[in-house]
Design a protein around this nucleic acid. Sequence first.
DNA 1: CGAATACTCAACCACATGGTTGAACATATG
DNA 2: CATATGTTCAACCATGTGGTTGAGTATTCG
Lengths: 130, 130
Amino acid sequence: MVEHMHIAGSRLDHVFHALADPTRRAMLQSLASGERTVSELAEPFTMSLAGASKHIKALEAAGLVTRDIRGRQHLCRLQPGRLAEAHEWLSFYERFWTERLDALDALLRLPEPDNQRPPVPPSEPKGDDT
Amino acid sequence: MVEHMHIAGSRLDHVFHALADPTRRAMLQSLASGERTVSELAEPFTMSLAGASKHIKALEAAGLVTRDIRGRQHLCRLQPGRLAEAHEWLSFYERFWTERLDALDALLRLPEPDNQRPPVPPSEPKGDDT
DNA sequence: CGAATACTCAACCACATGGTTGAACATATG
DNA sequence: CATATGTTCAACCATGTGGTTGAGTATTCG
């Protein structure tokens, strides 16, 4: 498997790319408390409406936002599914940072001088994916 | 607060940007099963070594990978902290998709025709951030 | 109808990105 | 020492990105 999960590939590309921009993250945050029109989403920023519209299109392309055209205004709403996918993707690595915390915890609990290795923490955390 | 969390901003920019590339995600996956030299990380891909080196630099800039120069080869290892931050950031929206699942679940459990609303799930989940 | 509003589209710009190549650097090794 | 190996660096190129502006399309309103 190319990716460690069933996820199609370019989907995550778009989601993470959309998330990599602070303007778009702020828009998501705004959408987290309810539907917003394009103007409402654009209002907090100094950029032009067309500029904000592009950001919203990026969020749409990533599947993070859907649009409901209601009259002359476009209602945008959060679509959490893809966010959940990204979260799930990151969860794969969760064992990694919890393992590291466990190792640190264990190290702190036994202060024996014999156990003093150079600061090169666990290098092979069980290769279970090859 | 600009972001809904204490996270500095440009940090997440770099992390999500690093994650938006399939080559870099594959590199992280490789690093998840142990340390890798630059050549080892580059080997699965068709690109030049210099190209792969740039990707690794992007991962380093995002704080996802650290480098341990050992002789003439550079040992890279996963640094899960920033991944944990991104995961935590996404967790903010977790309530959002679980709410939606809860609503769907509730809808499926009571098949009363009076309760048949259009498929427009919760739009105002308590704005607690402004 | 005509005009204001909400928004998109297309063209354009400066700059970042992902990729290449060839040269340079540092370290092993014969 | 000379040479091979592992890696980076700098220059370059094509394309993508975030932003602008100005015009165009619907829709509502007087």
